[in-house]
Computed example of a mutant assay.
Amino acid sequence: MARQGTIVFFDLETTGLGDLLQDAKSCHIVQLGASCEHLTTFNRYILPCIPIEYRATEVNGLTVSYGQLFLHGEPVRTVSLYHSLKSFIHYLVSFPGPVLLAAHNAWRFDQIVLMRVLRKFSLFEQFKQVVSGFMDTLPLSKKLYPQLKRFNQPYLVRCFLGVKYNAHNAVEDAKQLEELFCNRWNPDNDDIREFTDWI
C-alpha cells in the first residue's frame, strides 16, 4: 500500500494488559508481530525480565516457567529484545519507504512501549530513518463508524469480517487489522493523516 509509503500493521503482547498508562511505561514485550501487504509477516517471542500478569496470561496464553516462555503450555523459541528490535527494523527496511506503522490503540500503548524500548537500546535513530510515524486505528474506527457499540479489535473483526480469530496473538492481530483496514474500511489520505502521529 503506497498512500504514505508503506503501511505496516503491528501489535505487541506484553507482561501487562495495556489498560493503564502505567502499563505502557513499565511492561515488557513478550511478542512483537507485524504484517504487510498480506505477503510477509514478522514474529518474535521475547522472554521478559519481569513476571507476566495473571490477567495478561488469561488473554494471551503466555507464561514463563524455569526461564522458558510457553504459549498455551507449549514452549516457544525466544529472541532477546535487542535482537528482536534489530530484526524488526531490518524487516521494515525491506519495504518501500517511508514506513507508517499502524496499530489498534497505538497512541496510548503500542507506540509508547515500542519507542521506550527503542530508546533504551539506542535504536531509535536507526528506527527513525525507516519509520515516518504511527497511525492509530482505534480513533480512526470511531470516526469512520460512530454508530458501533464497541471498538475493540475482536469486535470489529466480527462486525466487518464475520469471523472469530486467535485474538491477542500479535501476528494474528496485525493480520486481521490489515484485513479490516485494506479490504473493509479503505480510509482516504486525509483520514490517515488525521490519525497519524508523525515522528
Results as ranks from 00 to 15, higher is better:
Val157Glu: 05
Asn166Val: 03
Lys149Arg: 09
Ile112Thr: 02
Leu62Arg: 10
Val59Pro: 11
Phe70Leu: 08
Glu172Asn: 10
Arg3Thr: 15
Arg193His: 04
Ala103Trp: 00
Trp185Ile: 12
Glu74Ile: 13
Glu13Asn: 05
Phe127Pro: 03
Ile29Gly: 08
Gly73Thr: 03
Thr137Ser: 08
Glu37Ser: 03
Phe42Ser: 11
Glu125Leu: 07
Arg44Ala: 01
Val163Glu: 15
His104Tyr: 01
Met135Cys: 12
Ala106Thr: 00
Ser132Ala: 09
Asn152Tyr: 14
Cys159Val: 15
Gln176Lys: 12
Gln129Lys: 12
Ala56Lys: 02
Asn105His: 06
Leu17Arg: 10
Ala34Pro: 01
Ser87Thr: 06
Val8Glu: 04
Ser35Ala: 14
Ala103Phe: 00
Leu140Pro: 01
Leu144His: 06
Asp191Arg: 04
Tyr82Val: 08
Leu101Val: 07
Asn60Lys: 00
Asp19Glu: 12
Pro187Cys: 09
Tyr54Phe: 15
Asp197Ala: 11
Thr14Asp: 08
Phe9Met: 07
Ser65His: 13
Ser26Thr: 13
Cys49Val: 13
Lys86Arg: 09
Leu92Met: 03
Ser141His: 06
Val30Asp: 02
Lys175Asp: 08
Tyr66Trp: 02
Lys175Ala: 10
Ile112Arg: 01
Gln176Val: 14
Ile46Thr: 00
Ile7Thr: 12
Ser84Phe: 05
Gln111Asp: 06
Gly5Met: 04
Asp188Glu: 09
Tyr82Phe: 10
Asp191Trp: 06
Glu37Arg: 05
Glu53Gly: 13
Ala34Glu: 03
Phe127Gln: 05
Ile52Phe: 15
His38Ser: 15
Gly97Ile: 00
Gly162Asp: 09
Phe42Ala: 06
Glu74Ser: 13
Thr41Val: 11
Thr40Gly: 09
Asp173Pro: 00
Val117Pro: 01
Gly61Leu: 14
Lys175Tyr: 14
Glu194Trp: 06
Asp136Val: 07
Lys120Leu: 05
Arg44Trp: 01
Lys86Leu: 09
Arg150Glu: 11
Asp191Thr: 09
Cys159Pro: 04
Ile192His: 12
Tyr82Ala: 06
Leu17Glu: 00
Ala103His: 02
Ala167Ser: 13
Asp191Glu: 12
Ile7Ser: 08
Ser87Gly: 12
Gln4Leu: 13
Asn189Phe: 11
Tyr66Leu: 03
Ile46Ala: 03
Asn105Lys: 07
Phe109Lys: 00
Ser141Pro: 05
Leu148Asp: 10
Lys128His: 10
His168Met: 13
Tyr82Asp: 09
Thr40Met: 07
Lys143Leu: 15
Tyr155Arg: 11
Ile52Tyr: 12
Leu12Val: 01
Ala56Arg: 02
Asn169His: 14
Val59Lys: 14
Gly133Met: 08
Lys120Gln: 04
Asn186Glu: 13
Trp107Arg: 05
Leu161Glu: 08
Leu148Phe: 01
Gln153Cys: 01
Lys142Thr: 01
Trp185Ser: 08
Leu161Phe: 03
Asp11Trp: 01
Leu148Met: 07
Arg184Lys: 14
Thr63Gly: 05
Gly67Glu: 07
Tyr91Met: 05
Asp190Val: 13
Ser87Phe: 06
His83Thr: 11
Ala56His: 10
Pro48Ala: 05
Arg3Phe: 14
Asp188Pro: 07
Asp110Gly: 06
His83Ala: 14
Gln147Phe: 11
Leu118Arg: 02
Leu39Pro: 06
Thr137Lys: 05
Gln129Thr: 10
Ile199Ala: 10
